[in-house]
Design a protein around this nucleic acid. Structure first.
Length: 865
DNA sequence: GAGTTTGAAACT
DNA sequence: CAGTTTCAAACTC
């Protein structure tokens, strides 16, 4: 088929003729392969990439392949599988090795590829419709996009192509293999009742696969950078997903493996996300990695897909490079990974949809709920925080509540490691925040996990990790039926599980509707009811953040306690429990909060103010500076706080997602220092800020999508205008996020419109809509095809990912952007990533997320261009 | 593990 | 909005 492919794809030949192709040929050492495989190159590339990173991230490639028409879906999937399975014959071929070399060679040229890819992708999209027919599609691909575009990649692809060509012949066999995989996948996933992955998921997976494939290609080319970005994305996705996923799992059996490997859970999850199916597929490919990870998983996969083993060789060559990197990146994690076995299986499910997790788990009902019910994890957060607090306490230097990244060493370590990677890579700054978010959120998430998996081992880990029995503890409600805030589980947005000793509990997936309705009622009553009581900035985030504006980690108690007898020295005090110092919001008496005494008394603040004014000498300039900073921060904090804490009544999931974000966004409020300087500084503006905050709250709550809120808040902060001239939330949202990270601000400038996407995402508010259209435009520009704004702005309610075409377009864009490699890409990724969940609402549409990620890049490009 | 204390949540 | 009741966690023994 190889030669035939070419022949089949006249366009490909054309492409080869093109100067690009010639150029590529010159670049790539392995010319012959290229030409031969050029047609397949795209797919091959896609596969390789997918295998490595893409598919795993969001969905199972297998499903994707099955599905549809979408570009790669049918064609790619078929190819991939074909290649994998069919390759048995091809194994002998040297290409695999050559591919690696080529990849290396290609990396230099990758930029071109990416560009070309974009075009090809477009073409591919157009062609895709043919869908099921692998051959025709291939032909198109070959002729069309790949040829033109992929010159650089050809080297890599060539191998794949060769395999493909052969595979084409075996397409049918490949299809069979695909089905097998599906089956395997399902088996791996342990879907109960043979639940099949939701179509949506599959679709998503397909899209993602495509996207991923593209990205993966970049990864190959730009290992460091791409990995970073990719990681960042994955991290974000993981975070979002993990929350939902974990939550979903709450009721579920919770994989023992995950539980057993608490530390690994986060990473594992991440890996799963990244490697995800890739592992299943790739794992085979990379025995080495597999070893590190867990031979069992790999073996299982291998066993399942033994037929495909031959693929390993092929895939290996290409993927190895990618994978190895991933492994390197994840290498540390893998040790933990034993737990991942399940996690891997879970990942796909999670990515696919909530259903899968539930399915995988004993409780079928759970699956849907988790997504829907992603907990906000107030209490859990608090618990996590408390654990951290302990640490924080140890470190007085840190502001009252420096978030304890340490809280969950495992998680953090993993996250940090990931973050480190990012950082090292260069684009990582944002990543750091992500990490931070993760950390802050991570604690939360993990808590959620724990809570969610309460029965599961993870909780135990947590317990052990956190030292706090709290983390493990579950509710013991008797009269509330676990449908009131009294119930920690309910308050945390998680379903009650085994550990709970509750009676008459209705907080279970089975009663999802009741839970949700009750939740809504409570939120209606008090929009902040499920908002995190304490918000913290992770130290790491701050550290990573270069922004001078970013105050040191700070934590904040949103509502404030009302302690009278505990003196805010016991867990009765929410502030104390959250490891946060009391704030002016508190109404506590005899506050002795070790994390920060409530300035409480305005007088105290005034005094300090006076002191500042009078004692300029002693404290003098330093204090003033501090005050100024604190003022700005305080203002910001308030606004941010309002924005942040408020959880959209509608979206539980969003809240989860948010938290991480705002942890980043939120200005740190030094508890102890805060009591002094911050409060002082506040004094003048405090009232004003409060008013503003209230207004902001109303605004945010009512109309601002969470994302926007978050985004906006940071923007406000940066503006540093106490008045907080608020940028219209929708507009700012995007811009803001980048702003957080100093360097990226520039990028934001270039991408003014981008925020709109978020706006839509959040609540689908009118403002968001306009933005969404705008955001869409860039894509359209890039792609040269109109992209429905709607697709770009997935609404929470929208369960499904954007149409495949869109995803493809996004993928293309992403590729292009990556190829261009805007310095800020990573940052964008971060920011957007967290928001991803919002797109899907319960389930972030991977495609949407990707789009977000890519969009910024596009904007940048546009801006740069 | 039972009982008490505590403060938030819920209710009026 | 304030006061009261209910509730479950936190704490003590």
């Amino acid at each position: 088929m190889d030669t035939p492919d070419r022949g089949a794809a006249p366009p490909a030949a054309r492409a080869e003729d093109s100067p690009l192709f010639s150029f590529i040929d010159s670049l790539s050492p392995i010319e012959p392969l290229k030409s031969a495989y050029s047609g397949n190159s795209l797919q091959a590339y896609h596969q390789s990439l997918n295998i490595t990173s893409v598919s795993s991230i969001f969905t199972s490639p297998h499903h994707n392949a099955q599905k549809e028409s979408k570009l790669s879906k049918s064609s790619f999937a078929d190819f991939s599988e074909n290649e994998l399975c069919v390759d048995g014959t091809d194994k002998d071929k040297p290409p695999s090795s050559s591919n690696e070399v080529r990849l290396l060679a290609c990396t230099s040229t990758i930029t071109r590829e990416s560009q070309t890819i974009t075009s090809s992708a477009n073409e591919g999209v157009v062609d895709l419709p043919q869908g099921p027919n692998d051959l025709p599609q291939r032909g198109r691909f070959f002729s069309g996009s790949p040829d033109h575009n992929t010159t650089p990649c050809h080297g890599v692809r060539s191998d794949l192509k060769q395999d493909k060509s052969r595979k084409l012949e075996a397409i049918q066999t490949a299809k069979n293999t695909l089905e097998k995989r599906k089956c395997l996948f399902s088996t791996d996933m342990q879907l109960p009742d043979g639940c099949q992955p939701a179509n949506d998921n599959e679709v998503l997976g397909c899209e993602w696969d495509e996207l991923v494939s593209v990205t993966s290609g970049e990864l190959l080319a730009f290992d460091s950078s791409m990995h970073q970005d990719h990681r960042g994305i994955q991290l974000a996705v993981n975070n979002a997903e993990s929350c939902g996923y974990l939550l979903s799992r709450l009721a579920g059996d919770g994989d023992i493996a995950d539980r057993t490997h608490p530390s690994a859970s986060s990473q594992a999850y991440y890996q799963d996300m990244v490697m995800g199916e890739d592992k299943a597929e790739n794992a085979q490919v990379f025995p080495e990695d597999i070893k590190t990870i867990s031979g069992e998983e790999i073996q299982d996969n291998l066993n399942e897909e033994n037929a495909c083993n031959p693929l390993d060789c092929k895939v290996e060559t290409q993927q190895r490079g990618v994978r190895r990197r991933c492994l390197v990146f994840e290498a540390s994690r893998y040790p933990h990974k034993t737990a991942q076995k399940e996690s891997v299986a879970n990942l796909p499910f999670s990515t696919r949809k909530g259903k899968s997790p539930a399915q995988s788990h004993t409780n079928p009902a759970k699956t849907p709920s988790p997504h829907v019910f992603r907990g906000i994890g107030l209490h859990l957060n608090a618990l996590a925080l408390t654990a951290n607090d302990k640490i924080a306490r140890q470190n007085p230097s840190t502001t009252a509540l420096v978030p304890s990244l340490k809280i969950e060493p495992d998680m953090h370590g993993n996250v940090l490691s990931a973050g480190d990677n990012f950082i090292h890579s260069g684009a990582g700054l944002l990543d750091l925040q992500m990490n931070n978010d993760d950390c802050s959120a991570g604690g939360f998430l993990e808590n959620d996990h724990i809570s969610s998996q309460s029965s599961s081992p993870p909780k135990k880990r947590r317990k052990s990790d956190n030292n706090d029995d709290d983390s493990c503890k579950r509710c013991s409600c008797k009269k509330s039926k676990c449908l009131k805030l009294y119930c920690e589980c309910f308050a945390a947005g998680v379903y009650c599980s085994e550990p709970c000793s509750c009676q008459g509990c209705l907080n279970k997936p089975i009663h999802e509707e009741i839970v949700l309705s009750t939740r809504k009622q409570i939120e209606f009553r008090n929009p902040l009811a499920f908002a995190p009581k304490v918000i913290r900035l992770s130290d790491a985030a701050q550290e990573t953040q270069e922004d001078p504006n970013n105050t040191p980690a700070s934590a904040r108690h949103k509502r404030g306690c009302n302690c009278k007898k505990s003196s805010c020295l016991k867990k009765y005090c929410e502030c104390y429990q959250g490891g946060v110092g009391c704030s002016t919001n508190c109404r506590c008496e005899t506050c002795k909060n070790t994390f920060g005494i409530r300035d409480g008394a305005v007088s105290a603040e005034n005094e300090e103010m006076k002191q500042v004014g009078e004692q300029t000498e002693s404290c003098g300039k330093e204090k003033e500076n501090d005050l100024q900073n604190s003022n700005v921060q305080s203002e910001d904090h308030k606004l941010v706080e309002l924005a942040v804490p408020i959880t959209p009544p509608f979206d539980v999931s969003s809240s989860l997602l948010k938290q991480p974000n705002f942890s980043n966004a939120k200005p740190p409020r030094p508890t102890k220092p805060r009591s002094g300087s911050s409060s002082r500084s506040k004094a003048p503006e405090a009232v004003h800020s409060r008013k503003i905050s209230k207004v902001a709250e109303s605004v945010f709550d009512e109309k601002m999508p969470d994302i926007l809120k978050e985004a906006s808040s940071p923007g406000i902060v940066k503006t540093s205008s106490p008045n907080g001239k608020r940028v219209s939330p929708p507009h700012n949202a995007l811009s803001i996020s980048p702003n957080r990270k100093g360097g990226r601000k520039l990028i934001l400038k270039s991408i003014p419109s981008f925020p709109s996407l978020l706006g839509d995402m959040g609540s689908g508010s009118a403002a968001g809509n306009a933005d969404s259209t705008f955001s869409a435009s860039p894509l359209a520009l890039v792609l040269g095809r109109p992209v429905p704004a709607a697709s770009l702005s997935p609404k929470r309610s929208a369960p499904f990912p954007p149409p495949p075409t869109l995803s493809v377009a996004i993928a293309v864009v992403t590729v292009a952007a990556n190829s261009i490699r805007v310095p800020c890409s990573a940052g964008h990724m971060h920011k957007y990533i967290p928001e991803i969940p919002k797109f899907g609402g319960q389930q972030a549409s991977s495609s949407a997320a990707f789009a977000y990620i890519s969009l910024p890049l596009l904007f940048q490009l546009a801006g740069d261009g």
